[in-house]
Simulated assay, not measured.
Amino acid sequence: MPDPSAVAVFADLREEGRELDALVAELSPAGWAKPTPAPGWSIAHQIAHLHWTDRAALLSLTDAAAFAGMVEEALKAPDSFVDAGAEEGAALAPAELLARWRASRAALDEALAAASAEAKFPWYGPPMKAASMASARLMESWAHGQDVADALGVRRVPTDRLRHVARIGVRARDYAYAVRGLPAPVGEFRVELTPPEQSSDPEAWTYGPADAPQRITGPALDFCLLVTQRAHRADLALTATGPDADRWLDIAQAFAGPAGPGREPESAR
Rank of each mutant, 00 (worst) to 15 (best):
H49D: 01
L50S: 02
L50Y: 00
L50M: 04
W52M: 14
W52I: 01
R55H: 14
A56G: 07
A56K: 00
A56R: 04
A57K: 11
A57Q: 11
L58H: 11
L59H: 12
L59R: 11
S60K: 01
D63T: 03
D63R: 03
A64S: 05
A64H: 08
A65P: 07
A68E: 09
E72Y: 00
L75M: 13
K76Q: 08
A77D: 11
P78S: 07
S80E: 13
S80C: 03
F81D: 02
A84C: 05
A84M: 07
E88A: 15
A90H: 03
A91L: 10
L92D: 12
E96F: 03
L97V: 15
L98W: 06
R100N: 05
R100S: 10
A103V: 01
S104E: 07
R105Q: 12
A106V: 02
D109W: 03
E110K: 04
A114F: 15
A114Y: 14
A115I: 04
A115R: 04
A115T: 04
S116A: 02
E118K: 15
K120S: 15
Y124T: 05
P126K: 00
M128S: 06
A131R: 07
A131C: 07
A131G: 07
S132F: 14
A134M: 04
A136K: 03
L138F: 00
E140M: 14
S141I: 01
H144E: 01
G145K: 12
V148F: 09
A149S: 15
D150K: 09
D150Q: 12
D150H: 04
L152A: 15
G153H: 05
V154W: 13
R155W: 01
T159K: 02
T159M: 06
L162K: 08
R163W: 08
H164Y: 13
V165R: 15
A166V: 03
A166D: 11
V170Q: 08
V170Y: 11
R171S: 11
R173I: 15
R173D: 06
A176N: 10
A178F: 15
A178L: 14
